[in-house]
Design a protein around this nucleic acid. Structure first.
Length: 217
DNA sequence: CTCCCGATAT
DNA sequence: ATATCAGGAG
């Protein structure tokens, strides 16, 4: 039976992983979803459910030319908006949610994107993942975004055990220093898209392979 | 828990 | 053919 990692060893491994991520990917808070305003990011994240950010960016180029404000989305025709976002999948639900969400932005929040978890979660189409993206990226509020990449890789690294994204969020909060919460998401997505891909991870070329309990070489 | 759903990579 | 993609609602 393999020897269990001690608390000290675990703490050291976490530090090394964070340092490796910082030196490989940098510490800049970049965003893969193109946007110029908070409400545009909100729409983009709602659209990004179960679809790649590259394809969301392809659609939002034209979408934000056509709908220039939350008010335009709030007054949009459902069928027409469905056509505009059709290629992203889940288009019926996403279109309905975006219209409802923007109606609430106009009627309850003065056309602005709210800055609390509770208010964000009250918006249609907004769950914890989307809310945390807004809190972290727009309002610079320490938060952990658990998407498919963060879930998969956090479990592989042994930093989370649960299957429930909300529980993973809390597990990671205990393990990661607060200064690294926002950064974790973007770095892990970068890793998850290129090396630690879901189907056939390229452990052989991963800079974390010596620090990862799941590495297959 | 199930359902929503098109595009892409393998 | 099938797994996967910056998930969320009912």
């Amino acid at each position: 039976m393999a020897k269990r990692e001690t608390k000290t060893e675990r703490k050291e491994r976490i530090e090394k992983v964070l340092h490796a991520l910082d030196s490989e990917y940098g510490t800049e808070y970049i965003c893969y979803l193109n946007h110029e305003t908070p409400w545009q990011l909100l729409i983009a994240v709602i659209l990004s459910a179960q679809c790649t950010d590259a394809r969301v960016n392809l659609v939002t180029v034209d979408l934000f030319q056509k709908y220039k404000s939350p008010k335009n989305f709030a007054e949009a025709e459902l069928k027409e908006l469905e056509k505009d976002i059709h290629s992203l999948g889940f288009y019926h639900m996403k279109a309905k949610n975006i219209i409802s969400c923007c109606q609430d932005l106009m009627n309850k929040f003065g056309g602005n994107v709210p800055d609390t978890m509770e208010e964000l979660l009250s918006l249609a189409g907004v769950g914890r993942k989307t809310a945390n993206v807004i809190l972290g990226n727009i309002y610079d509020q320490p938060s952990i975004v658990v998407d498919t990449h963060v879930k998969r890789i956090s479990i592989k690294l042994g930093f989370a055990k649960s299957e429930d994204p909300e529980k993973i969020e809390y597990e990671l909060m205990k393990v990661l220093p607060k200064e690294h919460w926002i950064l974790w998401n973007i770095q892990i997505i970068t890793l998850g898209r290129s090396i630690c891909v879901a189907r056939k991870p390229k452990c052989g070329e991963c800079f974390l392979r010596e620090l990862c309990p799941s590495a297959q070489v």
